[in-house]
Simulated assay, not measured.
Amino acid sequence: MNRIFYRHPNILRMYGYFYDDKRIYLILEYAPKGELYKELNNQPNKRFDEVRTATYIAQLADALKYCHSKSVIHRDIKPENLLLGLNGEIKVADFGWSVHAPSSRRDTLCGTLDYLPPEMVSGRPHNHTVDFWSVGVLCYECLVGKPPFYAATNDETYMNIKKLQYTFPSFVSEGARDLISKLIVIDPEKRLNMDGVLKHPWIVKNRK
């Protein structure tokens, strides 16, 4: 994907590139506050409050809405691939697994296990709705401190994903549960889209 032409306040800009005989060098926007993953792990109990989580999810939803309007699927949304700008805003980065898919469904297994939707785990074709699933997983991890399907082994994680087997801790609000449960849905076509995320009452109430 040529990100020089993809401009959004919550997507890390690529200004250009150059290369020599051994390497390609990318000129990227500086995100001074680093990875969301590190910020999350520096928090008490390794989780954010609902206001901060809703703010991040709204920014991510807006960025993905923009990507999808350009027929770009990210396919690897996770805390390690989200950076924080000068004002603490989300910057979507690492488009290494992204695809430009204007009219096709993809069937490549990629991304990070804890964030993979069931259609990718099962090797079935997939489309931009894989990003919707990942937004739900990210929202859960930000609020709880670990992904919803996390297990001791990969096989157990796969099974949890396929069976939609996860639970909410008591401290997660009903509004957050409602949003997550509308994103983490087995049927890809029934997942809440990014417009729906931005209009969801929990997001509207809590985002800054």
Results as ranks from 00 to 15, higher is better:
200 H>A: 01
70 K>Y: 04
4 I>C: 06
47 R>F: 12
53 T>N: 07
196 G>A: 07
60 L>C: 04
137 V>W: 03
132 F>Y: 06
50 E>Y: 09
146 K>S: 14
88 G>R: 01
85 G>P: 02
163 K>V: 12
118 P>N: 03
113 L>P: 11
29 E>Q: 15
17 Y>H: 12
23 R>F: 15
150 Y>F: 10
67 C>P: 03
80 E>I: 15
157 T>C: 11
93 A>D: 03
81 N>A: 09
163 K>A: 01
182 K>A: 09
79 P>Q: 13
162 K>V: 12
150 Y>W: 15
179 L>K: 05
70 K>A: 08
6 Y>K: 11
103 S>F: 14
164 L>S: 06
111 G>R: 07
58 A>D: 06
90 I>A: 02
101 A>G: 13
194 M>A: 05
156 E>M: 10
66 Y>D: 09
167 T>I: 12
119 E>N: 02
192 L>H: 03
127 N>E: 04
193 N>T: 03
103 S>I: 07
199 K>L: 00
30 Y>R: 04
188 P>S: 08
140 Y>R: 02
122 S>T: 08
166 Y>W: 12
110 C>K: 08
169 P>W: 06
78 K>V: 14
129 T>F: 00
143 L>Y: 13
155 D>T: 15
185 V>L: 04
30 Y>H: 10
51 V>F: 10
27 I>G: 07
2 N>T: 13
28 L>K: 12
199 K>E: 10
154 N>C: 13
185 V>R: 01
67 C>A: 06
120 M>Q: 12
51 V>C: 14
44 P>W: 04
134 S>C: 09
28 L>W: 09
54 A>H: 03
8 H>Q: 04
54 A>D: 04
110 C>V: 08
178 D>L: 01
119 E>W: 00
42 N>I: 03
15 Y>I: 11
101 A>Y: 08
1 M>E: 14
22 K>L: 11
197 V>L: 04
116 L>E: 07
162 K>A: 03
5 F>W: 08
170 S>W: 08
60 L>G: 02
191 R>L: 09
96 G>F: 13
58 A>Y: 01
135 V>W: 00
175 G>H: 08
187 D>H: 05
73 I>Y: 12
71 S>W: 09
70 K>L: 12
7 R>L: 09
67 C>G: 10
187 D>Q: 06
102 P>T: 08
51 V>Q: 14
154 N>P: 13
87 N>R: 11
113 L>Q: 09
83 L>W: 05
134 S>I: 07
9 P>F: 10
94 D>Y: 14
166 Y>E: 11
2 N>P: 05
170 S>R: 08
114 D>H: 13
55 T>K: 02
131 D>W: 00
84 L>M: 14
201 P>D: 11
46 K>L: 02
196 G>N: 09
26 L>H: 07
156 E>T: 13
3 R>K: 10
9 P>E: 05
61 A>Q: 03
79 P>N: 05
66 Y>M: 10
129 T>K: 00
128 H>W: 02
153 T>N: 13
60 L>M: 10
140 Y>G: 00
115 Y>L: 01
109 L>K: 13
175 G>P: 01
121 V>D: 05
103 S>N: 14
159 M>A: 14
140 Y>W: 09
86 L>Y: 04
6 Y>E: 10
204 V>N: 14
155 D>Y: 15
71 S>F: 12
152 A>F: 09
181 S>N: 15
155 D>R: 15
186 I>T: 11
198 L>G: 06
135 V>D: 02
60 L>E: 04
163 K>Y: 09
200 H>V: 00
16 G>T: 12
126 H>L: 00
57 I>M: 01
